[in-house]
């Protein structure tokens, strides 16, 4: 349901050496997560050190199943506080992925009244006219 307003650019992510792999994967329509091979644990957002074992060389990128459930959300309904590049209303949702971590995202083809905690969702990607690739989540069969 996120609709972009033509002519207003959307903000780009800040890419550094720690999260380059994440955004490179998004570009290729893949959702990857940082994974510590020592702790067997997914970590998000990416960081240079595993906060559990404090290792800096046991982290790798693992592709996510892209499946999860809608954990929480907010609905932007007023121009007072919203981002002007999107048509109102738009939802920002927190998705709990099967891997256990949660990511903030927008929705695709989900009507405002369908946005509910517990909704099964999966990732999709969209290439925007400005060359950016973004990920969003759509409904899936449970």
């Amino acid at each position: 349901m996120v609709k972009l307003i033509e002519g207003i650019p959307i903000m780009r992510p800040y890419i550094d050496l720690d999260n380059q792999g994440y955004w490179d994967a998004v570009k290729n329509h893949k959702l990857v997560l940082q994974y510590c091979t020592k702790c067997n644990r997914f970590i998000h957002p990416p960081r240079p050190m595993c906060p559990t074992c404090r290792s800096q060389d046991t982290m790798e990128w693992k592709e996510s199943s892209g499946k999860g459930i809608l954990y929480s959300y907010v609905m932007f309904t007023s121009p007072k506080m919203a981002y002007p590049a999107y048509e109102l209303p738009y939802a920002v949702v927190l998705v709990e992925l099967e891997e256990g971590v949660r990511i903030v995202t927008n929705t695709h083809e989900i009507e405002p009244d369908e946005v509910q905690i517990g909704l099964p969702v999966e990732v999709m990607f969209e290439d925007l006219p400005d060359g950016q690739t973004v990920y969003r989540f759509k409904k899936r069969e449970a």
Partner: peptide, 17 residues
Amino acid sequence: PVALTPNYGYIWPLGFV
């Protein structure tokens, strides 16, 4: 035009501002 820090990059571009 670009999120202020890497971690803001995961939330701000989503209209989550």
